[in-house]
Every structure is written in structure tokens, then in C-alpha cells.
């Protein structure tokens, strides 16, 4: 209930004119560029892992040639968007929650209110925009890196034919799938941002440093769980025919 009220206020602030530019740029850079090293590392390993695991599974019933199909579908439709979201939930979301919670417990948010500045406009709206816009880009980036890693692992380590692999990927992955991945990115991005901001914003002065820890923890867990669960529904909606 309280969450819905927060969402309503956040939406009003978000669509009520453009967000403060400096804040937006700062958070967009932090969310986007700041996540790149981590995301790159993780998608490389997740992509390779996808190949290796799929190979291990498929080889048992002689289907190792289907690797391209599996990596294409599993990676681009499901794994990379969710991964980008969960990683960002952990990194960006936790940072958002921690910074807002810290502002709450040291009365900085109240100081804003006293100075007749709407904290929703100044603090929450730019963060929401930044993450919502950056996450789809990160998803697209993860698609490319992950697929390259899968390809590398499949051809170099498992000895799968590279041409077949790419052909299968091209067969099974349509432009629509990429668009769907990016769409998921937008949804997850907004979700991560709003959940994290909510938990950060809800910290109280009397919680002290502990409040920051609690907010961070909740932001990470809730945004990860929500993204994974929502992914299931989105997939069911987008792909079940």
C-alpha cells in the first residue's frame, strides 16, 4: 500500500517535466558505464557456461549440434536480460538504495523539504530515468558479449562447427527476440530503480547506519526476485503461442 503510494508519487515526479540534467547524467553514467566492467566479466563467463553446460547436457542424448539453437534462445531471450537486471539490481540498485537511505538518516532529505525542493523530483526522478534508459542498453551489450563468449566456448573448447552454430543462432533468433530482450530491459530497469528507491527512501533517521544496510539488502533481494519472477510472466506472454 505504502509502496503503491510511493510509485504514484514517483510517476508524477518522473513525468512532470524533464529530470534535473546534472543528476540524470551523473546517475546514467554511474549506472551504465559503471556497470560495464562487472557486466562484461559476468556475461563472458555466463555465455561460456551456457555453452559448456548445454553441451554437457545435450551430449548425453546426442544433440550437441543443437548448441547454437540453445545458446541463442536461452541466452538472448532469457539469460542475458535477466542477468543484466539481477547484476544491476545488485550493483546499481544497492547504490541507489544506500545513497537515498544515507540521505534519509542524516536528514538530508528533510533538509531538501525544508528548502522547498521536492525530493521526488530532485532525487528519485533522475535515478528512475537513468536506470530505465541504461538497462536496455546494457541488455543489448550483454547479448553481444554473451553470444560471442558462447560462440568461442562452443567452437574452441567443445569443437562445435562455428558455421553451424551461427546459422542456428540466426535461424532461431529474430529481430523480434532482440526487441523483446530490450523491452524486458526497460521493464526491469524501471522495476529495479523504483524498488531500490523505495527501500532507500523508507529508511528512518532513528535506524542509523543499520537502516542503510537494511535498505541495501532489501533493494538487492527484492529487485532480483521481482525481475526473475516477472521474467517468467513476460516470457510466457511474449513467447508462448
Amino acid at each position: 500500500m505504502e509502496f503503491l503510494h510511493f510509485v504514484r508519487r514517483a510517476l508524477v515526479a518522473q513525468f512532470n517535466g524533464p529530470p534535473p540534467r546534472d543528476e540524470f547524467v551523473r546517475h546514467a553514467l554511474d549506472a551504465g558505464v559503471g556497470s560495464l566492467p562487472l557486466l562484461t566479466l559476468l556475461t563472458i563467463f555466463a555465455g561460456m557456461n551456457l555453452s559448456v553446460q548445454a553441451y554437457g547436457t545435450f551430449v548425453r542424448f546426442g544433440g550437441q549440434d543443437l548448441l547454437g539453437l540453445f545458446c541463442g534462445v536461452g541466452g538472448i531471450r532469457e539469460l542475458y536480460p535477466v542477468m543484466a537486471a539481477v547484476i544491476c539490481g545488485a550493483r546499481i540498485g544497492a547504490t541507489l538504495a544506500a545513497s537515498l537511505a544515507n540521505m534519509q538518516i542524516s536528514e538530508q532529505v528533510e533538509a531538501l523539504e525544508v528548502m522547498a525542493v521536492d525530493p521526488m523530483r530532485l532525487l528519485v526522478a533522475p535515478r528512475l530515468w537513468a536506470v530505465t534508459l541504461m538497462l536496455p542498453l546494457l541488455c543489448g551489450y550483454a547479448d553481444v558479449v554473451g553470444l560471442a563468449a558462447s560462440y568461442w566456448a562452443a567452437t574452441e573448447q567443445m569443437g562445435v562447427n562455428g558455421g553451424t552454430f551461427m546459422e542456428q543462432v540466426r535461424d532461431i533468433v529474430h529481430l523480434g527476440d532482440l526487441a523483446a530482450g530490450v523491452f524486458k530491459g526497460v521493464v526491469f530497469g524501471w522495476l529495479v530503480a523504483i524498488v531500490s528507491c523505495y527501500h532507500g527512501y523508507r529508511a528512518l533517521k532513528r535506524d542509523g547506519a543499520e537502516g542503510v544496510g537494511v535498505a541495501t539488502n532489501r533493494a538487492i533481494v527484492h529487485s532480483a526476485v521481482l525481475c526473475i519472477v516477472l521474467n517468467m510472466f513476460l516470457s510466457a506472454l511474449l513467447y508462448v503461442r
Binding site: G56, A94, G211, V212, I220
Partner: peptide
């Protein structure tokens, strides 16, 4: 207080990295 948030945050990202990397080598 910011340090507390950072510790929680770093713990999660570091372990996730470790888990994924280790998982790959184990597989």
C-alpha cells in the same frame, strides 16, 4: 553509513562474480 551500504553491495557483486567464474571452471 555509506560504508555499510558499500560493504553490503560489494559483498554481493564479488560473490556473484566468484560464483559464476567458479561455476564455469567446475563445469
Amino acid at each position: 553509513a555509506t560504508g555499510v551500504g558499500k560493504a553490503a553491495n560489494d559483498t554481493v557483486t564479488m560473490t556473484i562474480v566468484l560464483i559464476l567464474v567458479a561455476d564455469y571452471f567446475v563445469s
